[in-house]
């Protein structure tokens, strides 16, 4: 028992990000509301970022900003956290917001066309609109089950 607690304690942020990822992922797949899907995507991606940042952290380290003027002499004494994941995540955050913006734009257009942001309603509307589609929709439902 103590071992498990140790594991949970030592890796607590690890458990958290797995949980967050699953929450976000679930929202992306299972939620019918398009905005909720995008919220889920945000949670999912942020959880991955948390994983990266956890990776970069070093016990007793400092921010990866060199202490001015003392770098050459004291470099060995100071432990800096790993800057590489930070850079990657800076990029990834920007990518994430770009995706979100595009997704929101699409949602707005969908709302303009269908008057709803609920997946069921849109699906029903498409079926009504396009008789050929119903055949396909049935198929894709079969696929997904």
């Amino acid at each position: 028992m103590a071992g498990i607690i140790d594991i949970v304690y030592a890796e607590y942020n690890y458990w958290i990000y797995v949980t967050l990822m699953m929450i976000g992922f679930y929202a992306m797949i299972a939620k019918k509301n398009l905005i909720k899907k995008v919220i889920g995507a945000n949670i999912f991606q942020t959880a991955i970022f948390l994983f990266y940042i956890s990776l970069s952290d070093i016990k007793g380290g400092t921010e990866p900003i060199l202490l001015h003027g003392e770098t050459s002499t004291h470099a060995a004494d100071i432990i800096y956290t790993n800057p590489v994941p930070h850079v990657l995540i800076l990029t990834a955050i920007v990518v994430s917001v770009s995706t979100t913006a595009l997704a929101l734009a699409l949602i707005i257009r969908i709302y303009e066309e269908y008057g709803s942001i609920e997946e069921d309603v849109i699906l029903a509307a498409r079926r009504k609109l396009n008789p050929e589609f119903s055949e396909y929709a049935r198929q894709s439902e079969v696929d997904s089950q």
Binding site: N42, T46, F49, L50, I53, S54, S56, D57, G61, T62, E63, P64, I65, T81, P85, H86, I89, L90, I93, V94, S96, V97
Partner: peptide, 17 residues
């Protein structure tokens, strides 16, 4: 993230996210 000493990322997340 600030707590994890990733200030740049935290700053960005606060501004962007």
């Amino acid at each position: 993230w600030v707590e994890m000493r990733a200030v740049d990322v935290a700053f960005t997340e606060a501004a962007v996210g």
